[in-house]
Design a protein around this nucleic acid. Structure first.
Length: 962
RNA sequence: GCGCGGUUAGCUCAGUGGUAGAGCACUACACUGACACUGUAGGGGUCGACAGUUCAAACCUGUCACCGCGCACCA
């Protein structure tokens, strides 16, 4: 097997393994496999996208899930792809074409040409992000890469449109829509972001036509729309104005047409706001439009699609931008003497999500969709109340598993915490539930579904799925279908232009994205992929697209597949910089993940990000975390090198461990491994990735390296072996059985930890899996050719533990030893013994001590010698600490600083006295003894005795000093 | 206005009733034969405030304050 180089150089290793994985087809899903399926569809990034830290977070999580699923023996499909992202992509390409001088305006090229150019751009530059994902180690099945405008995918989109049209859920209508004056298209409500915006509340007065000399004052934030006003509205219950209803006022603008407009009654008017008088502009305000409908008011459009005032706004305003016009109108009102005042005012204004400009409500002809399968979508997501594991009953005691199990007629497993979720999973109702992580998003989801407005699905763009509707130019007939309709005459007459013209609009990008989980798998055919992998298992995405995408996918899933599209949805947090600010290009706080990978390695980035990504919280990205990941990889690397210094690496695993030769250190680390396996598995089952990463970090670094490897040096002895003649591994094993057994334990630990780490650190674990020889003796697809399919470690069985003596006594024995070490090291530093000075310790043992354990103590204490002397008579003032194994002395032969020792002891006594007082106060509390559970009571009594004993000894020591 | 999340060490965060924890940062010592991308030891917190429940509260209940987010919206 290859020797492990001194330093870990991730770049070469990562490239090598990724190429190998691809070549061997390890990522390719087999829909005909008999293995249980696991599937996940990537949230398709924009085809124009480049990798950001947000993607790193999201896709690392998906990769961890996919890799672990493979190790659990599942047939894994992780399906990648990109989204055509209508507005964004058209913008990007138009910009580059303008820059290249190919065109000034899209009309220069025309629709067909521009779309062609966008396709060209897509083929050449699009999907860059997917290549970047490979650098991260993403184990996607690239053979199944999809694009939302693939021909087959487009057919799905059209089919769905036609289907909904036939079901009567799609209609066309002239409605108030959110209009983006930059993108020149309608937007859905979800694409409008409300932002508090500073402006003015302008007060101006108008004269009542029927009562000259009577004026009404109106407060408005949008004076530029005055020329479009066709009424004034007041609340009929407002005594100030009720008598004026039915009369008219003179509209001040445009000057050319100061029409008399009616005063109408509207219950919805807030009497307390402004002056209680509302100007009504049906053409440029959603609420005003509705008032207009109720009172059959005229609609006067005074702002054109670009946000520029038109002719109807009057000669003074025509051609002005709407915001310039706003200033101009105020000026004009002032000149007329109509302006009363302008108050600074902050209100919420809608902005276009993409272009970040103020959206203009505008009346226009659009296609709308009444959402399908809403009730199913709403019912299928598990709500937080159900997830609650404890319900309180009046006496304050948790309603535990037993009573609940009783209700459900189930027997809980003894001594294990049974959650309500587990119990309910046995109940039918529960079977069909989809789980959100964190569950609180389910409430947000439900709330949105409860107040759905029809979805405006048409966009006035060129890049996207064309609406499959044709209008007959002569008859006005409307046709909706997959193919353009024939004109009824014979097709021979090809040169003649068809009288059918297709609707020029394209569909909202999300109208294709919502089909992603099944359109990517070949729907509407009954493909093996759909049969095997739908519904998908997990979806990993950001909560910001819960309405845009997640909710709509769920509805689409029910509507066309009759089933939920995924079983679990994991919502990541948002990646922020270390000051908590959002990553943004303008702030320059958004590092390029590829730079980070080049500097630290992909594994380091993955581990660093995952370690700081708790479920449901935002992630503050700090390069320090990546550094920590890199350091950890180095640690792993060196721990493997340590193993390789000794003979026979990799050739003896599991079965080779001889239980009779196990030391307490061996038993201890095996027990810690068992705990780590359980913790990591449970954490991953519950999508607590940072907990899993932390548990692994702690186990490998703090337990395995810091304690076990150091202790193992006692059993391993020196390298090279103290023999002249070279020996084979088997001969060494025969000659040094303890050493061989320790190496077997090390191999066992490494073989398990590499597998536990693989989902997080795919590259370095694969490299070491090979270097340490763990491939040998394993069947090809179970770790023999790659760690990717090695079995995920299982917690130890009881009989395994019994066989190897993995008992709590063994653990206690090791812990006693380690506590003794800590006490000794503490003595060293208290007396300022330099770390490299080897000193002599004396232990006055309270019980038996194995020679091997004494050797371990000596090594861990970095002692020159450790004397075991039951009858040791310590010279006066010899520094000592009470340890679980007895008194440990640090004889310093006359070098003792009595004052320092006195001070140390006094400090210690103060601490112990304090603790003793605390526990005594509790015990003295009336009611404590009666009400507290026996175990807790005993534990407190024991604690009291321990502190008491320790205090006595400390006091004795202090007394000996004087 | 309604809803959700948060407030624990200098920083980022674990911790769902019984002796306050981790990582980073900081201090001291040491380049000891896997590792200075390291090791060892150490300092540092009245757990946002107030009140309540309890033998016992960081944890449960209530009120408030501040921070963040979502939804709705009155011009």
């Amino acid at each position: 097997m290859p020797e492990i180089p001194k330093t870990y150089e991730p770049q070469a290793i990562e490239e090598k393994w990724y190429a190998e994985w691809l070549e061997k087809g390890f990522f390719t899903a087999n829909p005909h496999s008999t293995k249980e399926p696991y599937s996940i569809v990537i949230p398709p990034p924009n085809v124009t996208g480049v990798l950001t830290l947000g993607h790193v977070l999201n896709n690392t999580i998906q990769d961890i899930l996919a890799r672990r699923a493979r190790m659990l023996g599942r047939e894994v499909l992780w399906l990648p792809g990109t989204d055509h992202a209508g507005i964004a992509t058209q913008n990007v390409v138009e910009k580059s074409l303008r820059k290249a001088g190919t065109m000034k305006h899209r009309d220069d090229l025309g629709r067909e040409k521009l779309v062609e150019k966008i396709w060209e751009w897509k083929e050449e530059y699009g999907g860059k992000i997917l290549k970047q994902l490979r650098a991260l180690g993403a184990s996607c099945d690239w053979s199944r890469t999809r694009f939302t405008m693939d021909p087959e995918y487009s057919v799905c989109v059209q089919r769905v449109f036609v289907d909904l049209y036939k079901k009567g859920l799609i209609y066309r209508g002239k409605r108030m829509v959110n209009w983006c004056p930059v993108a020149l298209t309608a937007l859905s409500d979800e694409e409008v972001i409300m932002k508090p915006t500073n402006g003015f509340l302008t007060y101006f007065k108008v004269e009542v036509v029927e009562s000259p000399g009577t004026f009404l004052t109106i407060a408005t934030t949008r004076p530029e729309t005055i020329p479009g006003d066709t009424a004034i509205a007041v609340n009929p219950n407002d005594p100030r104005y009720a008598h004026l209803i039915g009369k008219h006022v003179r509209r001040p603008l445009p000057l050319e047409n100061q029409a008399a407009i009616p005063i109408v009654a509207e219950e919805s008017i807030d009497i307390a706001f402004g002056t209680g008088v509302l100007k009504v502009t049906p053409a440029h305000d959603k609420a005003d439009f509705e008032i207009g409908q109720r009172h059959q008011l005229e609609s006067i459009e005074v702002i054109d699609p670009r946000g520029v005032m038109d002719a109807l706004a009057g000669g003074d305003l025509e051609g002005l931008d709407r915001f310039e016009a706003r200033k101009k109108v105020v000026e004009m009102l002032g000149e007329m003497g109509s302006l009363e005042k302008e108050d600074p005012y902050q209100n919420n204004v809608g902005y276009s999500e993409r272009a970040d400009v103020v959206v203009e409500p505008r009346l226009s002809e659009q296609w709308f969709l009444k959402y399908p399968s809403v009730e199913q979508a709403r019912r299928c997501v598990e709500q937080p109340e159900i997830r609650q594991t404890e319900e309180r009953v009046p006496d304050g005691k948790p309603l535990g598993a037993h009573s609940l199990a009783g209700k459900l007629g189930l027997q809980p497993a003894p001594s294990t915490q049974v959650s309500l979720t587990d119990l309910l999973s046995n109940v039918n109702e529960k079977e069909c539930k989809m789980h959100f992580y964190p569950v609180r998003w389910a409430k947000v989801y439900d709330h949105w579904l409860g107040g759905l407005q029809d979805w405006c699905i048409s966009r006035q763009l060129w890049w996207g799925h064309r609406i499959p509707v044709w209008y007959h130019q002569e008859t006005g007939e409307v046709y909706c279908g997959l193919e353009a309709p024939g004109d009824g005459s014979d097709a021979v007459n090809k040169s003649q232009e068809s009288p059918w013209k297709q609707d020029p609009d394209v569909l909202d990008t999300w109208f294709s994205s919502w089909l992603w989980p099944f359109a990517t798998m070949g729907w509407p055919e009954k493909t093996p992929e759909l049969a095997k992998f739908y519904p998908t298992t997990d979806l990993v995405t950001g909560p910001d697209i819960i309405f845009f995408w997640v909710a709509r996918m769920i509805m689409a899933g029910y509507e066309w597949m009759g089933e939920m599209p995924f079983k679990n949805v994991y919502f990541t947090g948002i990646i922020r910089d270390k000051q908590g600010r959002k990553m943004s290009k303008s702030l320059g706080n958004s590092p390029d993940p590829l730079d980070i990978i080049a500097q630290y390695g992909a594994d380091a980035l993955r581990f660093g990000v995952m370690r700081s990504a708790p479920l449901g919280a935002d992630i503050l990205f700090d390069e320090k975390n990546v550094e920590l990941g890199r350091n950890f990889c180095t640690k792993l690397w060196n721990a493997a090198r340590f193993r390789q210094m000794y003979e026979g690496a990799g050739s003896e695993i599991e079965g080779e461990i001889n239980p009779t030769l196990l030391t307490s250190d061996d038993r201890w680390i095996l027990l810690r491994l068992d705990v780590a396996i359980r913790e990591v598995s449970t954490a991953l089952d519950e999508y607590r990735f940072s907990d899993a990463a932390n548990a692994l970090y702690r186990f490998f670094w703090s337990e395995y390296c810091d304690w076990y490897l150091e202790a193992s040096k006692a059993a391993l002895g020196r390298v090279p072996l103290p023999t002249e003649v070279p020996m084979s591994a088997a001969e060494v094993a025969a000659a040094y059985p303890l050493r061989a057994n320790t190496l077997a334990v090390i191999d066992f630990i490494l073989a398990h930890t590499l597998r536990l780490f693989h989902p997080f650190l795919p590259f370095i674990t694969e490299e070491l899996w090979e270097s340490l020889g763990f491939r040998d003796d394993l069947p090809a697809r179970q770790g023999g050719d790659t760690i990717m399919f090695a079995h995920w470690p299982k917690p130890f069985e009881e009989d395994f533990k019994q066989h190897y003596g993995l008992t709590s006594e063994a653990e206690k024995a090791a812990n006693a030893k380690y506590d003794t070490v800590l006490a000794g090291r503490n003595l060293r530093s208290t007396y300022n013994i330099p770390s490299n000075k080897r000193v002599r310790f004396v232990l006055q043992p309270t019980g038996d001590l194995l020679p091997h354990d004494a050797e371990v103590l000596k090594i861990l204490l970095n002692a020159e010698a450790l004397d075991i002397a039951a009858d040791y008579a310590a010279p006066q003032g010899t520094p000592t600490n009470l340890t679980p194994l007895g008194h440990l002395y640090l004889p310093l032969e006359g070098l003792i600083d009595l004052d320092a020792e006195r001070e140390r002891l006094s400090k210690e006594i103060a601490k112990v006295t304090d603790e003793l007082a605390k526990v005594r106060a509790k015990l003295a509390n009336p009611g404590f003894a009666e009400k507290v559970p026996a175990a807790v009571f005993d534990e407190h009594r024991q604690r009291e005795r321990n502190w008491q004993e320790k205090l006595g000894q400390l006091q004795k020591l202090l007394a000996n000093l004087s």
